[in-house]
């Protein structure tokens, strides 16, 4: 039994079909544009967050060889022979806050990632070392850490 209209697209498109297809096409196109346009709304252009830059005090607040914690910002500020550096305690695996152990290393409670005192990854699933954050000096001499600005690992601010 032959099915009517089967294989009609093999033939040249007739005027009636063309107009129908054009109507359908423009309907689909406008709908898609409307939906895609609406989807722009949930993508925030400005993140509703506090200033990412925080003042941490003058350099002499940090004794050489010390590590100072800013628990509210999950931040550790270290000072060694060559300068000051700030490490984010947020695990690079899935965002838990790592805990600094007595030997200076960082352990993540969520999936067992381990980092050395200088942030390099030593074990667990973390794909990379802890983030180094930008430390800069204000004209007043006070230090500022920018939590959004990452700098290459091991970079230090000479003091």
């Amino acid at each position: 039994m032959s099915i009517p209209n089967e294989g009609r697209f093999a033939k040249p498109v007739e005027r009636r079909d063309f107009l129908g297809l054009a109507a359908l096409g423009s309907f689909c196109l406008t709908s898609a544009a409307a939906i895609l346009g609406s989807l722009k709304l949930p993508m925030p252009s400005v993140l509703p967050e506090a200033d990412s830059r925080i003042k941490i005090g003058p350099p002499d607040r940090f004794a050489p060889g010390s590590a100072t914690n800013f628990p509210e910002r999950s931040l550790w500020v270290h000072r060694d022979g060559s300068g000051i550096y700030a490490i984010s305690a947020i695990c690079t695996h899935l965002g838990c806050v790592t805990k600094r152990e007595k030997d200076g290393s960082f352990h993540c409670p969520c999936h067992g990632s381990k980092f050395a005192a200088d942030g390099t990854v030593t074990g667990g699933p973390a794909p990379k070392g802890l983030e180094y954050l930008k430390v800069s000096r204000l004209p007043s001499g006070e230090l500022v850490v920018d939590l959004q600005k990452k700098v290459p690992a091991q970079e230090r601010l000479a003091v």
Binding site: H93, C96, V97, P109, C110, G112, G124, P127
Partner: peptide
Amino acid sequence: SVPENPAKAPWYFLGLQEMVSYSA
């Protein structure tokens, strides 16, 4: 500022959590 330790998902996601502990 202080995560649960251990921070476990509901049971049906724990198989996944074990696997993300190898690679996220």
